[in-house]
Protein backbone atom coordinates (compact mmCIF):
# COMPACT_ATOMS: atom_id res chain seq x y z
CA UNK A 1 0.00 0.00 0.00
CA UNK A 2 1.39 3.35 -1.02
CA UNK A 3 -0.14 4.97 2.03
CA UNK A 4 0.58 8.51 2.96
CA UNK A 5 -1.25 11.29 4.72
CA UNK A 6 -1.56 14.33 2.52
CA UNK A 7 -1.75 17.77 4.07
CA UNK A 8 -3.57 19.24 1.11
CA UNK A 9 -6.38 16.89 0.13
CA UNK A 10 -6.81 16.15 -3.55
CA UNK A 11 -10.07 16.72 -5.41
CA UNK A 12 -10.57 13.82 -7.81
CA UNK A 13 -13.17 13.78 -10.61
CA UNK A 14 -15.73 10.93 -10.50
CA UNK A 15 -17.57 11.67 -13.73
CA UNK A 16 -19.76 14.74 -14.24
CA UNK A 17 -21.97 14.09 -11.20
CA UNK A 18 -19.49 13.35 -8.42
CA UNK A 19 -16.06 14.08 -7.01
CA UNK A 20 -13.97 12.64 -4.23
CA UNK A 21 -12.02 14.73 -1.72
CA UNK A 22 -9.12 12.41 -0.91
CA UNK A 23 -7.14 12.83 2.31
CA UNK A 24 -4.68 9.93 1.75
CA UNK A 25 -4.59 6.20 1.07
CA UNK A 26 -4.51 5.12 4.74
CA UNK A 27 -6.64 3.81 7.57
CA UNK A 28 -5.99 6.43 10.22
CA UNK A 29 -8.25 8.06 12.81
CA UNK A 30 -6.97 11.57 12.01
CA UNK A 31 -7.56 11.15 8.29
CA UNK A 32 -11.05 9.74 8.95
CA UNK A 33 -11.66 12.60 11.39
CA UNK A 34 -10.87 15.18 8.70
CA UNK A 35 -13.23 13.39 6.28
CA UNK A 36 -16.05 13.59 8.83
CA UNK A 37 -15.24 17.21 9.70
CA UNK A 38 -15.46 18.21 6.03
CA UNK A 39 -18.75 16.31 5.79
CA UNK A 40 -20.09 18.35 8.73
CA UNK A 41 -18.81 21.62 7.28
CA UNK A 42 -20.54 20.93 3.96
CA UNK A 43 -23.83 20.35 5.73
CA UNK A 44 -23.70 23.98 6.84
CA UNK A 45 -22.63 25.33 3.44
CA UNK A 46 -24.43 22.99 1.04
CA UNK A 47 -23.93 24.25 -2.52
CA UNK A 48 -26.80 24.33 -5.02
CA UNK A 49 -27.40 20.92 -6.61
CA UNK A 50 -25.72 18.91 -3.82
CA UNK A 51 -27.36 15.47 -3.74
CA UNK A 52 -25.49 13.35 -1.26
CA UNK A 53 -22.18 13.00 0.58
CA UNK A 54 -20.57 9.65 1.38
CA UNK A 55 -17.79 9.55 3.98
CA UNK A 56 -15.36 6.61 3.75
CA UNK A 57 -12.13 5.67 5.55
CA UNK A 58 -10.12 8.34 3.82
CA UNK A 59 -12.22 10.35 1.41
CA UNK A 60 -15.48 12.21 1.14
CA UNK A 61 -17.47 11.51 -2.01
CA UNK A 62 -19.75 14.34 -3.06
CA UNK A 63 -22.55 13.66 -5.52
CA UNK A 64 -24.29 16.55 -7.24
CA UNK A 65 -26.53 17.42 -10.17
CA UNK A 66 -24.15 18.58 -12.92
CA UNK A 67 -26.90 20.69 -14.47
CA UNK A 68 -27.44 22.64 -11.23
CA UNK A 69 -24.03 22.76 -9.57
CA UNK A 70 -21.38 25.30 -10.50
CA UNK A 71 -18.39 22.95 -10.49
CA UNK A 72 -15.72 25.64 -10.25
CA UNK A 73 -17.45 27.23 -7.27
CA UNK A 74 -17.80 23.80 -5.62
CA UNK A 75 -14.11 23.11 -6.15
CA UNK A 76 -13.17 26.47 -4.62
CA UNK A 77 -15.45 25.86 -1.63
CA UNK A 78 -13.96 22.40 -1.05
CA UNK A 79 -10.36 23.55 -1.41
CA UNK A 80 -11.07 26.27 1.11
CA UNK A 81 -12.88 24.00 3.60
CA UNK A 82 -10.67 20.94 3.19
CA UNK A 83 -7.47 22.81 3.97
CA UNK A 84 -8.94 24.24 7.12
CA UNK A 85 -10.72 21.26 8.64
CA UNK A 86 -9.18 19.84 11.79
CA UNK A 87 -9.83 16.20 12.60
CA UNK A 88 -13.24 16.07 14.15
CA UNK A 89 -12.57 16.27 17.87
CA UNK A 90 -16.03 15.45 19.12
CA UNK A 91 -16.82 11.93 18.10
CA UNK A 92 -20.36 10.68 17.63
CA UNK A 93 -22.14 8.42 20.07
CA UNK A 94 -20.58 5.58 22.02
CA UNK A 95 -22.57 2.34 21.93
CA UNK A 96 -22.30 -0.66 24.24
CA UNK A 97 -23.18 -3.67 22.13
CA UNK A 98 -23.97 -7.00 23.85
CA UNK A 99 -22.36 -10.04 22.22
CA UNK A 100 -22.76 -13.78 22.71
CA UNK A 101 -19.29 -15.13 21.90
CA UNK A 102 -18.43 -18.61 20.63
CA UNK A 103 -20.50 -21.76 20.18
CA UNK A 104 -23.12 -21.57 17.44
CA UNK A 105 -23.01 -17.74 17.72
CA UNK A 106 -19.28 -17.46 16.96
CA UNK A 107 -18.20 -20.51 15.02
CA UNK A 108 -14.64 -19.25 14.42
CA UNK A 109 -13.80 -18.30 18.01
CA UNK A 110 -11.92 -21.53 18.83
CA UNK A 111 -10.07 -21.46 15.52
CA UNK A 112 -8.96 -17.84 15.98
CA UNK A 113 -7.82 -18.66 19.54
CA UNK A 114 -5.79 -21.62 18.31
CA UNK A 115 -4.10 -19.60 15.56
CA UNK A 116 -2.86 -17.08 18.08
CA UNK A 117 -2.02 -19.56 20.85
CA UNK A 118 -4.69 -18.04 23.07
CA UNK A 119 -7.64 -19.46 24.95
CA UNK A 120 -11.14 -18.60 23.80
CA UNK A 121 -11.56 -16.53 26.95
CA UNK A 122 -8.44 -14.52 26.18
CA UNK A 123 -9.75 -13.78 22.67
CA UNK A 124 -13.06 -12.62 24.13
CA UNK A 125 -11.26 -10.41 26.65
CA UNK A 126 -9.01 -8.83 24.02
CA UNK A 127 -11.94 -8.24 21.69
CA UNK A 128 -14.26 -6.84 24.38
CA UNK A 129 -11.69 -4.61 26.09
CA UNK A 130 -11.02 -2.40 23.07
CA UNK A 131 -12.83 0.79 22.11
CA UNK A 132 -13.62 0.72 18.40
CA UNK A 133 -14.12 3.60 16.04
CA UNK A 134 -16.74 3.31 13.29
CA UNK A 135 -14.69 4.37 10.24
CA UNK A 136 -17.47 3.92 7.79
CA UNK A 137 -20.73 2.16 7.02
CA UNK A 138 -20.62 0.41 3.69
CA UNK A 139 -20.82 -2.74 1.60
CA UNK A 140 -24.41 -3.36 2.73
CA UNK A 141 -26.94 -1.30 4.70
CA UNK A 142 -25.64 -0.79 8.26
CA UNK A 143 -22.46 -2.88 7.86
CA UNK A 144 -19.98 -1.16 10.21
CA UNK A 145 -16.23 -1.15 9.53
CA UNK A 146 -14.42 -0.74 12.85
CA UNK A 147 -10.87 0.27 13.68
CA UNK A 148 -9.20 -0.43 16.99
CA UNK A 149 -8.78 -4.21 16.96
CA UNK A 150 -6.02 -5.38 19.32
CA UNK A 151 -3.09 -6.26 17.03
CA UNK A 152 -2.79 -9.62 18.85
CA UNK A 153 -6.11 -10.58 17.23
CA UNK A 154 -5.22 -9.51 13.68
CA UNK A 155 -6.15 -12.54 11.56
CA UNK A 156 -5.82 -12.82 7.77
CA UNK A 157 -9.11 -13.34 5.98
CA UNK A 158 -10.28 -16.87 5.23
CA UNK A 159 -8.83 -18.12 1.94
CA UNK A 160 -12.33 -19.17 0.94
CA UNK A 161 -15.00 -16.61 1.84
CA UNK A 162 -18.31 -17.97 3.12
CA UNK A 163 -21.31 -17.41 0.85
CA UNK A 164 -23.40 -16.42 3.85
CA UNK A 165 -22.79 -15.35 7.41
CA UNK A 166 -25.69 -14.67 9.80
CA UNK A 167 -27.06 -11.17 10.30
CA UNK A 168 -25.50 -9.28 13.21
CA UNK A 169 -22.33 -11.39 13.22
CA UNK A 170 -19.40 -9.87 15.15
CA UNK A 171 -16.42 -10.41 12.85
CA UNK A 172 -12.73 -9.70 12.40
CA UNK A 173 -10.62 -9.68 9.21
CA UNK A 174 -6.99 -8.58 9.02
CA UNK A 175 -6.59 -5.51 11.27
CA UNK A 176 -10.25 -4.68 10.99
CA UNK A 177 -13.29 -5.54 13.04
CA UNK A 178 -16.85 -5.36 11.91
CA UNK A 179 -20.52 -5.66 12.74
CA UNK A 180 -22.39 -7.38 9.93
CA UNK A 181 -25.91 -6.02 9.59
CA UNK A 182 -27.74 -8.47 7.38
CA UNK A 183 -26.92 -11.94 6.09
CA UNK A 184 -24.08 -11.51 3.61
CA UNK A 185 -21.05 -13.19 2.03
CA UNK A 186 -17.84 -12.68 4.03
CA UNK A 187 -14.27 -13.89 4.35
CA UNK A 188 -13.96 -12.54 7.87
CA UNK A 189 -13.93 -14.68 11.04
CA UNK A 190 -17.06 -14.91 13.19
CA UNK A 191 -16.36 -14.42 16.90
CA UNK A 192 -19.93 -13.94 18.08
CA UNK A 193 -23.31 -12.45 17.36
CA UNK A 194 -25.27 -9.54 18.77
CA UNK A 195 -29.04 -9.22 19.10
CA UNK A 196 -28.54 -5.55 18.13
CA UNK A 197 -29.73 -4.70 14.63
CA UNK A 198 -27.56 -1.97 13.22
CA UNK A 199 -30.08 -1.79 10.35
CA UNK A 200 -33.82 -2.38 10.65
CA UNK A 201 -36.01 -0.90 7.92
CA UNK A 202 -39.08 -1.15 10.18
CA UNK A 203 -37.52 0.83 13.04
CA UNK A 204 -36.97 4.51 13.67
CA UNK A 205 -34.03 5.10 13.50
CA UNK A 206 -33.45 2.70 10.61
CA UNK A 207 -29.69 2.85 11.17
CA UNK A 208 -28.11 2.70 14.63
CA UNK A 209 -24.42 3.21 13.92
CA UNK A 210 -22.86 6.05 11.95
CA UNK A 211 -19.33 6.91 10.84
CA UNK A 212 -17.58 8.63 13.75
CA UNK A 213 -19.41 6.64 16.45
CA UNK A 214 -17.58 4.44 18.93
CA UNK A 215 -18.45 0.86 19.85
CA UNK A 216 -17.57 -1.25 22.89
CA UNK A 217 -18.59 -4.90 23.13
CA UNK A 218 -20.08 -6.46 26.23
CA UNK A 219 -19.92 -10.26 26.52
CA UNK A 220 -23.27 -11.73 27.55
CA UNK A 221 -24.41 -15.26 28.33
CA UNK A 222 -26.18 -17.24 25.61
CA UNK A 223 -29.13 -17.64 28.00
CA UNK A 224 -29.97 -13.93 27.48
CA UNK A 225 -30.13 -14.20 23.69
CA UNK A 226 -33.86 -14.96 23.33
CA UNK A 227 -34.96 -12.11 25.61
CA UNK A 228 -32.76 -9.52 23.86
CA UNK A 229 -33.60 -10.83 20.42
CA UNK A 230 -37.31 -10.37 21.23
CA UNK A 231 -36.62 -6.80 22.38
CA UNK A 232 -34.78 -6.08 19.13
CA UNK A 233 -37.63 -7.64 17.18
CA UNK A 234 -39.99 -5.23 18.95
CA UNK A 235 -37.91 -2.30 17.72
CA UNK A 236 -35.76 -1.60 20.78
CA UNK A 237 -32.16 -0.60 20.07
CA UNK A 238 -30.81 -3.14 22.65
CA UNK A 239 -27.44 -1.41 22.23
CA UNK A 240 -26.96 1.02 25.08
CA UNK A 241 -25.64 4.53 24.56
CA UNK A 242 -22.90 5.18 27.11
CA UNK A 243 -20.69 8.15 27.85
CA UNK A 244 -17.04 7.86 26.80
Amino acid sequence: MSGCIVQTPRILPCGDGALSVDFGNVIDPDVNGRVLALDDALRLRAPAGLLETVPTYRSLMIQFDPTLTDYDALERLLTDEAQNVAPQSTLGKRWRVPVVYGGPFGIDLEDVAQRHGLSAHQVIDLHAQAVYRVYMIGFLPGFAYLGGLDPRLATPRRTKPRAKIPASSIIIGGQQAGVASIECPSGWHILGRTPVRSYDPGRDPTFLLAAGDEVVFQPIDASRWDELERAAEAGEPVAEQVSP
Binding site: M1, G17, N25
Partner: peptide, 15 residues
Amino acid sequence: AKGFNIVSDGIATGH
Protein backbone atom coordinates in the same frame (compact mmCIF):
# COMPACT_ATOMS: atom_id res chain seq x y z
CA ALA B 1 1.23 1.25 -12.19
CA LYS B 2 1.24 0.91 -8.40
CA GLY B 3 -0.79 -2.09 -7.28
CA PHE B 4 -4.51 -2.60 -7.20
CA ASN B 5 -5.38 -2.44 -3.51
CA ILE B 6 -6.51 0.91 -2.24
CA VAL B 7 -8.15 1.77 1.06
CA SER B 8 -11.89 1.68 0.34
CA ASP B 9 -13.28 4.93 -0.92
CA GLY B 10 -16.60 6.05 -2.35
CA ILE B 11 -18.16 4.72 -5.52
CA ALA B 12 -20.19 6.64 -8.07
CA THR B 13 -22.52 5.04 -10.62
CA GLY B 14 -20.53 4.58 -13.81
CA HIS B 15 -17.17 4.13 -12.10
